[in-house]
Simulated scan of single mutants.
Amino acid sequence: MRILVNSDPGSADRDNEDWLHAGENLVAVLDGATARTDTGCLHGVTWYARRLGENVVELARDLSTPLPTALAQAISRVAEEHRGTCDLEHPGTPSAAIGLVRFYPTSLEYLVLGDVSLVVDQGGRLSVVTDDRVSRTATAERVEADRYPIGSPSKTAALLAMKHTELAARNVPGGYWIAEADPTAAQHALIGAAPVDDRTRLAVLSDGAARAVTLGLLDWPGAVNLLCSEGPAKLIARVRQAEAEDPHGTRWRRNKCSDDATAVYVDGFAGTQ
């Protein structure tokens, strides 16, 4: 099995709020949700994504534990770690999207919660799993935020309004679901399974790396081919080049110039287990 990984912070002066694990039997990519408001937490988004990732990987290594159960238990564990010091009822309490893939000799199973993308290529037959429920919330506020250039006071105000509306829709029926302090969110993850053979190629990307497709730089087959031939660092470099060419977001409308970007690519499944 060949596993290629790269993770790059969106800014040199901020911690990377993405986290990854890539092993022979398990891949996890977590994308900590940007906090534009108070969180009620002393630890922050980077800490939350790391601790959730470490716990879910430990639990998911037990093949008898269903992936949603592993995620629910990990959410509960991390909540208990900071329940005494932090306000977990705060509407802005740290949260993270997650993509989790577990491999078997002839198959894989996956879980996606929040805006992490999973791509499975079965000899040219491509399946993409993306949880876009968050992007279907705060629609009017998103349109308003897109009117302004990145870095402007109007953009900042519009993004704050958007965030408040997003948070009101977080982990409630009709809204979107993401890992934070309530383990029941795991019940709303997108789950599935697929066969694997020597033609299978797989990628898991945070939304910062998925900009290679969402900005229109590549399509999904092109992104997988680039990951295969030149690796995740090259894919992220393509994204960074586009971001640098459009720092104010006037060509490609987005919330911030550069986002944390993480990509994991896997192939060579046959005979690995």
Score class of each variant (00 low, 15 high):
23 G>F: 08
151 G>Q: 01
216 G>Q: 09
21 H>R: 12
59 L>R: 13
263 A>D: 05
124 G>A: 04
263 A>L: 09
243 E>T: 05
120 V>S: 00
86 C>G: 03
138 A>S: 10
198 D>E: 12
88 L>D: 10
101 V>Y: 07
180 E>V: 02
126 L>N: 14
270 A>T: 15
170 R>H: 04
95 S>K: 08
17 E>K: 10
207 D>M: 02
179 A>P: 01
123 G>C: 10
260 D>V: 00
44 G>Y: 08
90 H>E: 10
40 G>I: 13
221 P>R: 15
145 A>I: 03
212 A>G: 04
139 T>A: 09
117 S>K: 07
109 E>Y: 01
190 L>F: 14
96 A>E: 13
4 L>I: 00
78 V>Q: 12
58 E>S: 11
182 D>Q: 13
169 A>C: 08
248 H>V: 06
208 G>D: 00
174 G>L: 10
207 D>P: 02
79 A>S: 14
156 T>F: 15
211 R>K: 06
98 I>N: 02
25 N>D: 15
46 T>F: 01
234 K>S: 12
115 D>V: 02
83 R>Q: 14
202 L>W: 12
72 A>D: 12
201 R>V: 09
241 Q>T: 15
213 V>M: 06
102 R>G: 04
40 G>T: 03
52 L>T: 03
261 A>D: 11
112 V>E: 04
79 A>L: 08
209 A>H: 00
261 A>H: 00
117 S>T: 15
178 I>F: 08
263 A>S: 01
159 L>F: 07
190 L>G: 02
57 V>M: 05
263 A>K: 03
233 A>Y: 02
229 S>P: 15
73 Q>K: 10
86 C>N: 00
95 S>P: 04
74 A>I: 00
211 R>C: 04
43 H>C: 05
113 L>H: 05
258 S>F: 14
25 N>P: 02
130 T>S: 11
224 V>P: 14
237 A>W: 09
101 V>T: 13
135 S>H: 13
26 L>G: 02
195 P>C: 07
232 P>I: 06
236 I>F: 11
247 P>Y: 08
146 D>R: 13
143 V>Q: 15
233 A>G: 11
161 A>D: 15
49 A>Q: 03
115 D>W: 14
57 V>L: 10
114 G>D: 07
206 S>A: 10
50 R>Q: 14
108 L>C: 08
69 T>A: 06
236 I>D: 02
178 I>W: 11
94 P>F: 03
127 S>R: 13
218 L>H: 05
99 G>A: 09
35 A>M: 02
14 R>M: 07
